[in-house]
Structure formats: structure tokens, C-alpha cells
């Protein structure tokens, strides 16, 4: 399955890009994607928290990814 990853804040620094096309096998949920990213980019494990959004909404670990989904990697927010 092909998905697109878009990253902000420190997640962009960890991935060394703000956008990444990913061909994933054995990954079908947000939770599995999180594990995959933490394995490929261990610096994600050092973060306080990591969240994901699809369709401009936060999604939980059990969210099923679909072909061509754009997944936003959301490190701890710090607005205000």
C-alpha cells in the first residue's frame, strides 16, 4: 500500500523532509505505522508523544489506513 507522510515541527527534522511517499507492507493501521516509523527513525521514540492525523482529524492507533492516504505526523504541539 502506498501512503504519503507529511511531517511538521521536530518530526520534519527527524524524517529530514516534510513529505515522504511510503510503500508499506504489513502495516495497515496508524498504530502499526507508528511502530514502523519508530523502528526506522529511532529519534521518534525520544519524543514526549506522537500523534497522527488523517483527513484533518486526529486518529487513534486502530485507524485503518487506505491506499494513497495522507498521514500527518504530529509531534507534541506548542502553540500559544
Amino acid at each position: 500500500m502506498k501512503i504519503k507522510i507529511t511531517a511538521f515541527g521536530i518530526a520534519k527534522d527527524i524524517l529530514k523532509t516534510n513529505s515522504l511517499a511510503l510503500e508499506i507492507t504489513n502495516v495497515s493501521t496508524i498504530g502499526e505505522l507508528k511502530d514502523h516509523l519508530c523502528q526506522e527513525y529511532p529519534d521518534f521514540k525520544k519524543l514526549q508523544k506522537i500523534s497522527f492525523a488523517v483527513n484533518e482529524e486526529y486518529q487513534t492507533d486502530d485507524f485503518s489506513l487506505g491506499e494513497n492516504d495522507e498521514v500527518i505526523v504530529i509531534p507534541p504541539v506548542s502553540g500559544g
Binding site: 511538521f8 515541527g9 521536530i10 486526529y58 504530529i74 509531534p75 504541539v77 506548542s78 502553540g79 500559544g80
Partner: peptide, 13 residues
């Protein structure tokens, strides 16, 4: 303001 700091996807460097 408290909720913004928890939920709104804005990042400060």
C-alpha cells in the same frame, strides 16, 4: 488558551 496548547497543531521553535 489551555486547550489550544493541548490540541491545536501549531509548533513553536
Amino acid at each position: 488558551i489551555d486547550t489550544l496548547k493541548e490540541t491545536v497543531p501549531i509548533w513553536k521553535k
